[in-house]
């Protein structure tokens, strides 16, 4: 079974990760494990924007992690951006090994001021599986029920499904045969 490392970076919501890990294992058939990542990501911070550059965090992860056997999904609580966009929920190496997601904009408080732990869990699961899918070479899927559907707003994260569709699942399985 493919091992996927969930790598919290400067993260304090471990309860959330512990709560979603069994759902992740069930949905994806990957074997997720939580391994905190002790790296310094200060240089990815943009004081001007008050956000972290996700591409730079990915670069720091690549430089610091030598484990060849697994995919790694970094998780941060900070707001992420890429230079041309105001924010991103996450970023991945397309057909690579590393990806990163932020839970900053997955909190319902950010939008309506009301806390909703269940919604946060569902959104986090979707974002992890989405970015992970990119590391298997998956591009955005046209099926709105599929977790690989593109979602550039929180409303789109909420309306898409949390499973890979049949085609995307097949593509992942094909990739896994080559590992």
């Amino acid at each position: 079974m493919t091992r996927v490392i969930l790598a919290p970076i400067n993260f304090d919501s471990y309860e959330l990760l512990n709560e979603i890990i069994s759902d992740l294992n069930e949905i994806s058939k990957f074997e997720f494990e939580i391994t905190p990542l002790n790296i310094d990501i200060k240089e990815a911070y943009s004081a001007e924007r008050g956000q972290y550059n996700s591409t730079q965090i990915l670069r720091i992860m690549i430089e610091n992690i030598r484990d060849e056997s697994s995919k790694v999904v970094g998780i941060v609580k900070y707001d992420l951006f890429i230079p041309v966009l105001t924010y991103v929920f996450g970023e991945a190496q397309l057909d690579g090994k590393f990806s990163i997601i932020s839970i900053f904009r997955l909190h319902e408080e950010f939008y309506s001021g009301k806390s909703d732990n269940n919604l946060l869990k569902q959104r986090t699961i979707k974002e992890i599986l989405h970015e992970l899918g990119h590391t298997f070479g998956l591009i955005h899927c046209k099926d709105w029920d599929c977790v690989m559907h593109s979602s550039s707003s929180i409303e789109e994260v909420d309306i898409k499904g949390k499973n890979y569709c049949f085609n995307c699942r097949q593509k992942i399985e094909e990739k896994l045969r080559y590992y």
Binding site: I82, P83, L94, I139
Partner: peptide, 15 residues
Amino acid sequence: AIIRQSLKAWFLEDG
């Protein structure tokens, strides 16, 4: 270059 690259990476995910 940084804008070209980040837009390219963003749209590659759309296939």
